[in-house]
Structures are given as structure tokens and as C-alpha cells.
Design a protein around this nucleic acid. Structure first.
Length: 478
RNA sequence: CGGGGUGUAGCGCAGUUGGUAGCGCGCUUGCUUUGGGAGCAAGAUGCCGGGUGUUCGAGUCACCUCACUCCGACCA
């Protein structure tokens, strides 16, 4: 696969310059555009269609687990943001402030939401009185703003689109269960929809969300060996409830503090798709979220019967997949390159030679395999192939991750790997923040998560040699 | 926020010792083509990122500024 010949000249090869490859793909696939505000991107139709497909499927999964959608305002008064100490400390450095309404200076400045915990808390305070009001299982699809210093399309933008789930429960157990449940929904989505394998685990205190008791995460490995945090789920305990004075009367007629969670995934997932599946010819889209799943390319379409046949095939396929027929007067070669760049999973070529034999040529984007398919079998064959593409994308990504996951038993070994082999490093940890800081400082890796699936690599901390508590995934991250 | 790079046509770039703005791709029109980014012909497109200065004269020199981009620190 690495030896695959590069056929599109405009895209920088990923081995040559991964960062440039990434921006080339984003541009050439027409996923987004830049604007006059740094870090604020336009989701162009093709990128937007991918996001819409992500939203549609994920939203269905939220509904299936009992969640309801709401819409909160985008402004948070400074005094509201400040109510939970850790939370405000975490976010204050990167919020955007509104200071004027028209020409009048506001009494109190408003921040543009960087996340909406405080708004949900204010709302819960108004609507939760009894245990009968619980749980509330909410989600919203909105954009948020975080004034990042360095930005990259999809991976880190100042405004980004996401979903944030917020729930409130009568007991800690229920809230903890919810936190894990939604983490599993995310992992399920990444693996079964995006074909990206993820490591599930919990963050160390250092990497925890501001205000959370526990932050759970799914970590994916990109083509260049860097980790991408692809979704997080937070357990808040009753910390926010206490800070916001949210209380309810329980069955035993006692006033109690409820327990909360929040969880989010963002347009960063599009970055994950690009970097997990893409190749030197551009984007490779997992079929389930591909705006176009099959592109029909008529060959020598001026010849009698070709366009008619292409139309007929397109019409038939519209019942089994998202299909587009490109009837523009660009040459076939141009179209091949174009749709490869855009990651369309299947290309169907139909020309005079095929029509004679009642067949067509189907080419898979992921491995370029060329298959001759009888026109009588299209409706069965196309969905089968889409499933195969999904399965093989997942399999390849998983194999690559496994190949790029190393184990380290000593500091020297870890440093050696961190310096020379991009990827995940599994290593034991004593639980001390000091060791985490030292590893970051001296090797550049951060703790990605404490995975649920623990294996005891050794009994000593990779950094200080003291007795180890947990095995962690370490790595360089986006 | 530190370090590097780049700003000239829609995109990618050239522009020498300062002297009236160029190339490729794309775009428009026509004809011929069509199984891996087609060929020929004729067109259209410029606040040289912005400002100040030096100069008879600035895309070119100086200073300032803004934006983008890459690498670090901080973060979904």
C-alpha cells in the first residue's frame, strides 16, 4: 500500500511532508475553505455533506439511547462562566468576549460559548426539583468558539461544529453508567461507521477536562503515527451541581445534589477520517458517510447509447446507494483523478465495449481493484462491495495501528521509541504527575489514556522505576 | 506566544543592477477528441497583502503592520 503509485500530481506525497499532504487533501477534495477570520473555516458542500452524514447517523444513535435534542444560546455571561472554579480556569484563556451591543457597552461582558456546561446548569437549576424530573438526557448540535493560537482545518479551528451531550441524574452510579455508555456509542460509531479503530480508556488527572471528576476518551492513531483524541465523555460527579446550587428532593424527601455528565465529538472527526484512511491520491472515505458512494463515469459518451445506459444504471443504483453520474465533458482520466481525490468508494465505468458485453467496470477506491460486473447483478454487487470497502478500511487501519504500537519497559527504551518510531507506546506508570510531566518534557509524549484493556508489561513505572499502578498509552498527539 | 517560510490574475508561480506586469494551469468561445488529469485556434482576467518612507521613478530598497503557513509551547 505504501508502494502504491501516486497518480495525482497536485497532492504532496505523505511520506514527503505529512502536514502538507493533509492540507493538500483538504483543499483538493474541496472539504473546506479559509475565511478572513483566522481559524474559522467554511464547510464547503462536500465537507458539509460528510458532516451531515455523521450527524444523521450519530443523532440516530443518541435518540436510540434515549436522548433529546435542545438548543442553548451561544452567549454566557462572565458571572455564569465563573461559577465553577476549575471549569473557568480551564476555559477562560481561550474564550472570545462580546463587550458591546450595537454601540453600547454591555454592563457585563458575554463569552461566546466554548462549551455549554454552565448554560445547562443554569437550565437544570430552573427545571429540576424532584427525582421525578430526573434524569434529563440532552444533546445539542451547535458550534462553539475557542480562541486557539495555532489552527489547522478540522483538527483545530477557532469555531468548530460539534455535538455536546449533557445529562443529569439522581445518582452517581447512573451518571457514571451514562458516561461509559456514551463513550461506547462513540467507539461504536468510529469503528462501525468511520472504520477507525479506537482505544477506549480514561484520561489521567493532567489531561482531564476542566471541572470533570473523570474524562473518558477514544484515541485513534493517524497515518503519521500521531494520536488523535476523537471523542470524550466526562463524569462530573456533583461538582457542578454544588457550584450552581442545583438540588432535587429525592424519594426519601431529602434534598440532594444530582450528578452530571457531558460528552462531545466534533468536526475533528473529519480530520480523523482524512488522516486515518487517506492516501497519496487523496481522500478515502468510509462508505457509510461518503456523500457519493458510487460515481458513474460514462466513457466515450458521445457514442450512441452510452449516456442512456449510464442514466439507466444511475437510476437503478439510486435505490441501493448514494450515486452520481458525471456527465460533464471532462475526460475520463480527469474524472478518475477527481473522484479519487474526493475519496468516492466505488467508481463505475460504462463504455461502448462494456455495453456490448452487458457489463461494467467497477474500481474500488481503497485498493484500486478493478472488477468486471454483469449489468444484471449491479443491485446486489454494489452494496456488497461497499461493505467490503468498509471492512478492509477498518482492517488496514487496525493492522497499521498494531504495527505502530510499541511497548517500553524503561525510560531509555521509551525515549528511543519516541524519537524514532511514530505511534502508540504502551508503558507502565506509577500514578505520579511528576513522571507524566517528565516524559512530556524529555520525550515529547503525553499520556493518551489508561486503557480499559490492561496488560501488565512490567511491575515498575517506566519513568521512575517505582511500583506501577497502570498501563498507559503514550504518544505524540494532535 | 516564540522560531522559520510565503503574500504578484481564480489557483500555482517567475519577475535580474529600481525604469509602463509575465508564465503555467484554470476560465470563456469554436472545432476535433474521450478506457488514467486531451489537442488546436481565438479571447477575458491585476489596488504586486496594507501603510509610511527613500527616489525623477518602487512589485523590486528601508521601516511598520496584517494575513496565511510550517515547527515548538497551550488546547476537542
Amino acid at each position: 500500500m505504501a508502494e502504491q503509485k501516486k497518480m495525482v500530481e497536485e497532492i504532496t506525497s505523505m511520506d514527503e511532508d505529512f502536514a502538507k499532504w493533509y492540507t493538500d487533501v483538504v483543499k483538493k477534495a474541496e472539504l473546506c475553505g479559509y475565511t478572513s477570520v483566522k481559524g474559522c473555516i467554511v464547510l464547503r458542500p462536500y465537507g458539509c455533506a460528510i458532516w451531515e452524514n455523521i450527524q444523521k447517523i450519530m443523532d440516530g444513535m443518541f435518540k436510540a439511547t434515549g436522548h433529546e435534542n435542545v438548543c442553548m444560546p451561544m452567549f454566557i455571561p462572565e458571572s455564569l462562566l465563573e461559577k465553577e472554579k476549575d471549569h473557568v480556569e480551564g476555559f477562560a484563556p481561550e474564550v472570545a468576549w462580546v463587550t458591546h451591543g450595537g454601540s453600547e457597552k454591555l454592563e457585563e461582558r458575554l463569552c461566546v460559548r466554548p462549551t455549554s456546561e454552565t448554560l445547562f446548569c443554569e437550565h437544570y437549576k430552573q427545571t429540576v426539583q424532584s427525582y421525578r424530573d430526573l434524569p434529563k438526557l440532552y444533546n445539542q448540535w451547535v458550534s462553539v468558539v475557542r480562541w486557539e493560537k495555532t489552527t489547522r482545518p478540522f483538527l483545530r479551528t477557532r469555531e468548530f461544529w460539534w455535538q455536546e451531550g449533557h445529562t443529569i441524574h439522581a445518582t452517581a452510579e447512573q451518571a457514571q453508567e451514562e458516561t461509559i455508555k456514551m463513550l461506547n456509542v462513540y467507539a461504536d460509531f468510529c469503528e462501525n461507521v468511520l472504520a477507525i479503530p479506537v482505544v477506549k480508556g480514561v484520561k489521567t488527572e493532567k489531561e482531564r477536562f476542566a471541572g470533570a471528576e473523570d474524562t473518558y476518551t477514544i484515541e485513534a492513531l493517524m497515518h503519521d503515527g500521531k494520536a488523535l483524541q476523537s471523542g470524550t465523555s466526562h463524569y462530573f460527579g456533583d461538582g457542578f451541581a454544588k457550584a450552581f446550587q442545583i438540588q432535587f428532593t429525592d424519594k426519601d424527601n431529602k434534598l440532594k445534589y444530582p450528578f452530571q455528565t457531558s460528552w462531545g465529538t466534533s468536526t475533528r472527526l473529519i480530520g480523523a477520517i482524512i488522516m486515518a484512511h487517506g492516501d497519496n491520491n487523496g481522500l478515502v472515505l468510509p462508505p457509510k458517510i461518503a456523500p457519493i458512494q458510487t460515481v458513474v463515469v460514462p466513457i466515450a459518451y458521445h457514442k450512441p447509447g452510452v449516456l442512456e445506459k449510464a442514466d439507466e444504471i444511475t437510476e437503478r443504483l439510486s435505490g441501493v446507494c448514494r450515486v452520481k453520474c458525471d456527465k460533464t465533458d471532462n475526460t475520463p482520466g480527469w474524472k478518475f483523478a477527481e473522484y479519487e481525490m474526493k475519496g468516492v468508494p466505488l467508481r463505475l465505468e460504462i463504455g461502448p465495449k462494456d455495453i456490448e458485453k452487458n457489463q461494467c467496470v467497477i474500481v474500488r477506491r481503497d485498493n484500486r481493484e478493478k472488477i468486471f460486473v454483469s449489468l444484471d447483478e449491479l443491485e446486489e454487487k454494489i452494496p456488497e462491495l461497499l461493505d467490503e470497502v468498509h471492512a478492509s478500511l477498518y482492517k488496514n487501519a487496525l493492522e497499521r495501528r498494531e504495527k505502530m504500537t510499541y511497548e517500553a519497559r524503561s525510560f531509555e527504551e521509551l525515549k528511543e521509541i519516541a524519537d524514532n518510531k511514530p505511534g502508540f507506546i504502551k508503558a507502565m506508570w506509577c500514578g505520579d504527575r511528576a513522571c507524566e510531566d517528565k516524559l512530556k518534557e524529555e520525550t515529547g509524549v503525553t499520556s493518551r489514556c489508561i486503557p480499559f484493556e490492561q496488560t501488565e508489561i512490567s511491575d515498575k513505572c517506566v519513568c521512575c522505576g517505582k511500583p506501577a499502578k497502570k498501563m498507559l498509552y503514550w504518544g505524540k498527539a494532535y
